[in-house]
Amino acid sequence: MGLSSFFKNLFGSAKDSAQDLAVQAETTFDQAKETAAPYIEKAETFAEETFAKAKEASEPVFESAVEYAHKAKDLVSEYVEKASESISDVVDSVKEKTSETVSDGKPTIVENVIDVSESTKETDDIIEGGADKE
């Protein structure tokens, strides 16, 4: 029986020790939470103030960016219109020149180029036959 009471005391005291440690840990956690609460509030306040300052500082920059974007859009629109008109004028000019050339009735000159550096049997026969006739 001594052995069984030994184990009961051993495990019973371990159980009691574990419960005591759990209670102490919970108490310590609650104290840490209470101690940290003001710091957490300060951090939240700091974050909110910093965000507000950043927002306030960025508003003029954002407004300027929007303004410049509108100006750039207007300028690009002008140049697109001018480029479109210029391209249209060029296309019309090419159409006119093409139709003038076609409607002139002028004969089209085609130049045929033949490489006569190589002599063929047929050309030799023609040359020889022509020489016999003379």
Results as ranks from 00 to 15, higher is better:
residue 123 T to Y: 00
residue 131 A to K: 10
residue 91 V to A: 07
residue 44 E to D: 13
residue 112 N to Y: 12
residue 118 E to C: 08
residue 22 A to M: 11
residue 63 E to S: 03
residue 56 E to C: 00
residue 45 T to G: 02
residue 72 A to M: 09
residue 105 G to Y: 03
residue 134 E to D: 14
residue 38 P to S: 07
residue 95 K to C: 08
residue 47 A to F: 05
residue 118 E to R: 13
residue 8 K to L: 08
residue 29 F to R: 14
residue 33 K to A: 13
residue 72 A to T: 10
residue 33 K to P: 04
residue 60 P to T: 06
residue 46 F to N: 14
residue 5 S to F: 12
residue 12 G to D: 02
residue 10 L to A: 12
residue 75 L to C: 09
residue 13 S to K: 09
residue 44 E to S: 01
residue 100 E to S: 05
residue 112 N to A: 12
residue 95 K to R: 04
residue 101 T to P: 00
residue 30 D to N: 15
residue 119 S to N: 12
residue 112 N to W: 10
residue 68 Y to W: 03
residue 57 A to P: 01
residue 130 G to C: 12
residue 116 V to S: 09
residue 91 V to H: 04
residue 127 I to A: 03
residue 5 S to E: 11
residue 126 I to V: 15
residue 114 I to Q: 09
residue 23 V to Y: 06
residue 121 K to G: 07
residue 93 S to C: 11
residue 78 E to R: 11
residue 72 A to V: 04
residue 18 A to F: 07
residue 62 F to P: 00
residue 40 I to C: 07
residue 21 L to H: 05
residue 74 D to F: 10
residue 56 E to V: 03
residue 104 D to H: 08
residue 14 A to M: 09
residue 22 A to V: 08
residue 87 I to M: 09
residue 126 I to H: 00
residue 54 A to W: 08
residue 115 D to L: 02
residue 66 V to N: 04
residue 88 S to T: 14
residue 53 K to G: 06
residue 20 D to I: 06
residue 13 S to T: 13
residue 69 A to R: 05
residue 7 F to G: 00
residue 67 E to C: 02
residue 123 T to G: 01
residue 40 I to S: 03
residue 65 A to K: 01
residue 28 T to Q: 13
residue 1 M to P: 03
residue 118 E to V: 11
residue 19 Q to T: 14
residue 127 I to K: 08
residue 90 V to W: 06
residue 34 E to D: 14
residue 62 F to W: 07
residue 65 A to T: 09
residue 6 F to E: 07
residue 76 V to K: 04
residue 46 F to C: 05
residue 62 F to K: 12
residue 3 L to G: 02
residue 74 D to I: 13
residue 35 T to V: 15
residue 61 V to W: 01
residue 17 S to Y: 08
residue 21 L to Y: 08
residue 101 T to Q: 07
residue 52 A to K: 15
residue 61 V to P: 00
residue 83 A to I: 03
residue 132 D to Y: 13
residue 125 D to S: 13
residue 122 E to A: 08
residue 2 G to M: 02
residue 106 K to Y: 02
residue 120 T to E: 05
residue 37 A to V: 04
residue 10 L to I: 12
residue 4 S to Y: 11
residue 127 I to N: 01
residue 56 E to G: 03
residue 12 G to C: 03
residue 3 L to E: 15
residue 50 T to R: 12
residue 91 V to I: 14
residue 16 D to E: 15
residue 36 A to Q: 04
residue 53 K to F: 03
residue 33 K to I: 13
residue 32 A to M: 07
residue 8 K to V: 10
residue 95 K to T: 06
residue 98 T to S: 09
residue 109 I to K: 03
residue 56 E to Q: 09
residue 30 D to K: 14
residue 58 S to D: 05
residue 84 S to E: 15
residue 4 S to N: 13
residue 16 D to H: 09
residue 117 S to H: 12
residue 57 A to K: 14
residue 50 T to E: 11
residue 34 E to V: 10
residue 59 E to G: 01
residue 81 E to N: 12
residue 50 T to D: 09
residue 27 T to Y: 01
residue 67 E to P: 02
residue 97 K to I: 10
residue 26 E to R: 06
residue 80 V to W: 01
residue 120 T to N: 01
residue 84 S to R: 11
residue 90 V to T: 11
residue 52 A to G: 03
residue 23 V to S: 13
residue 94 V to Y: 02
residue 114 I to V: 15
